[in-house]
């Protein structure tokens, strides 16, 4: 996929993945890939800076937790109230954009079919 498309929608994707339950960095990458049949593939160097940016903005909250298996603590991220509002706004924005694009492309396709 076009990396700019991913980059432009990164906040929306991450917030949507984090929304249901707390999740850590590595799981976010796999979740994004699995839920989109491998369409979203975060490049190295993209995920953690984006998570830290969202954390600084107050949209997500990170906390270290020890897992029952032991070992080093793992940093889990959960969405905050302001993150929920941001996600909701971005969803609406994306849906409006997608709808407009579909109308445009649908019309273009329709007119193309009519010409042929």
């Amino acid at each position: 996929m076009n990396p700019n498309l991913l980059k432009g929608n990164l906040d929306l994707i991450l917030l949507a993945i984090i929304e249901p339950e707390p999740i850590y960095g590595g799981e976010i990458t796999r979740e994004a890939s699995e839920r989109t049949n491998g369409y979203f593939d975060f490049k190295e160097g993209t995920l953690y800076p984006a998570l830290h940016r969202l954390e600084k903005s107050g949209f997500i909250r990170g906390s270290f937790q020890y897992l029952p298996r032991g070992g080093s603590p793992v940093k889990f991220y959960e969405i905050t109230e302001s993150g929920q509002r941001e996600l909701s706004a971005k969803r609406k924005e994306h849906q409006a954009f997608g709808s407009a694009m579909n109308s445009l492309l649908g019309d273009s396709l329709g007119s193309l079919l009519r010409k042929t």
């Binding site: 850590y24 960095g25 590595g26 953690y48 270290f64 070992g71 080093s72 940093k75």
Partner: peptide
């Protein structure tokens, strides 16, 4: 950040 990476990688290794 080192602790975060360590925790995430160790979890995946497990």
């Amino acid at each position: 950040i080192q602790a975060e990476l360590r925790g995430s990688i160790e979890a995946r290794i497990w």
